[in-house]
C-alpha cells in the first residue's frame, strides 16, 4: 500500500480517518502493517500490501 493512500482511507464502521502502523515496507510501499481506528478501537490489517477495510465478520 502506497503510504499516501492513508489520506483517502476511512474506518468502514465510523468513517473517521485511520492511523497507519507500518511493520514492513519497501520503497514507500507498505507490505505489512495495519490501520487503526481510535474511535472504534479497531485494527484493519494490511495483507501483502492490500488494506482490508472490512468489519471482522466480513473478512
Amino acid at each position: 500500500m502506497w503510504k499516501n493512500l492513508v489520506k483517502i482511507l476511512a474506518c468502514p464502521i465510523c468513517k473517521k480517518d485511520l492511523l497507519l502502523i507500518v511493520d514492513e515496507e519497501r520503497d514507500n510501499d507498505v507490505i505489512k502493517g495495519y490501520l487503526y481506528c481510535s474511535r472504534c478501537n479497531e485494527r484493519y490489517p494490511i495483507e501483502d500490501g492490500i488494506p482490508v477495510l472490512l468489519p471482522l465478520d466480513q473478512r
Binding site: 476511512a10 484493519y44 472490512l54
Partner: peptide, 8 residues
C-alpha cells in the same frame, strides 16, 4: 483496497 463499495 479490499472493502465494500465506499465503506473504507
Amino acid at each position: 483496497i479490499r472493502t465494500y463499495l465506499f465503506d473504507g
